[in-house]
Design a protein around this nucleic acid. Structure first.
Lengths: 214, 214
DNA sequence: GCCGTTATTATACGACTGAATAATTTCCGT
DNA sequence: ACGGAAATTATTCAGTCGTATAATAACGGC
């Protein structure tokens, strides 16, 4: 007799790809990159392992797609938060805060980010993805700083602007790292407040210039 | 007839443990934590796989020991560099520079660090190791800052000191991350110089106070 | 309502995994 | 020199890995 086979429903390519990528991220976050096996991933996505190779050339390519998804999630969240406002000062503040509050500051996000970072030196494809995102982020920071200082009446030379952007980016990254790794040491908005005060100092603004409402 | 067996030499426990840990780190850095199998590690250490379980309860425990080794290497290098000097200002400067020049800024070190970070959320043992090292590092920064401001005649409240330490630590971490991940974008001492200038701003010192010789 | 396309499942394969055990070699104390 | 403790190797084991292939169920076009 014909063996009983699992029933299933077809899905659109976009849907399946997303499901698989999401399942991949879940696995990496929960059991590490070692535990993120094709079977575990497929299982969590509600499909069987073979399907993965129908949408991706192999496991590695799926991991790359997953990395892109994580980085897009992180940068887009912050960039879009900044664009909600009109005033350069508020935009800058929003950008900083968005980078230091959920969903960016989330232990799961950090886990994923670190897992992929550790693969940058191994797989050149990952290095390229990282590079693209880093430069895009830096460009965004430069734009924010440039318009902010322009409106303030203290225009910046491109060199100064870039230098500020690098430091500012580092400060945000570092605080994000600390705050997410030791979330229990900081409460709700302590991190974002610390960031705003630090950025004021870093850009040599007057205290409160960035933090306080006018 | 008796099968030909590999000849070998006995080593002290300390030596073997170190060899195994070093081999573990080599593997993780070169092929990632997935590729760091007991056989690969043993092979690189010049022994056979079974020996690992003679010195460690299992692979996991060896990974923990390897993590401790990495973190000790990173923090001790910077802390000892600072202790070489007498004047608080020079100590602080040395500390910052040490954290942003080799061997701390090294793509291998970063790979290892990231690989372990991604396991913090998974394995509580790793979380404990991280926590210990983070607090030790923060304490060191606080001490450096405290003595520096004392000598400068502008004493700091414990609260301010801690707040400065957190930001300073974040800035250093962030620059270390950026500079190591995109080493080709920065030349020799650009990173350390940027750090010194940024720290001056962060602590609201007068420009050049930290960087320039008297 | 059937039929062809294809998304999906099922199964198999060889390689490799961490761990356990047994055999053997080394080296220290005497 | 020699015997005995133990460091190291060799081998085995039950699983799991990623991938390849073949069978099958689902769905859209007619």
């Amino acid at each position: 007799m014909a063996p009983a086979r699992r029933s299933y429903t077809r899905a659109s390519e976009a849907e399946r790809r997303e499901d698989l990528i999401l399942a991949t991220l879940d696995c990496i976050a929960e059991v590490g990159i070692q535990g993120a096996t094709v079977r575990q991933i497929a299982n969590r996505a509600g499909v069987t392992a073979g399907l993965i190779r129908h949408y991706f050339t192999g496991k590695d390519q799926m991991l790359e797609a997953a990395y892109r998804a994580v980085m897009n999630g992180m940068t887009q969240t912050a960039i879009e938060a900044a664009r909600e406002d009109e005033a350069p000062r508020a935009r800058l503040r929003r950008f900083i805060i968005a980078n230091l509050t959920p969903p960016v500051t989330d232990s799961r996000t950090l886990s994923l980010w670190a897992a992929f970072i550790s693969h940058i030196q191994i797989d050149p494809s990952f290095a390229a993805i990282h590079r693209d995102n880093y430069l895009a982020f830096l460009r965004e920071v430069e734009t924010l700083l440039s318009t902010f200082f322009d409106e303030r009446g203290t225009a910046l030379s491109p060199k100064q602007c870039r230098s500020f952007a690098i430091s500012l980016n580092a400060l945000i990254d570092g605080l994000w790292l600390e705050g997410t790794l030791a979330a229990d040491l900081f409460d709700e908005h302590e991190l974002a407040d610390a960031a705003l005060a630090s950025v004021e100092a870093l850009l040599r603004l007057t205290p409160g210039e960035l933090a306080l409402e006018k």
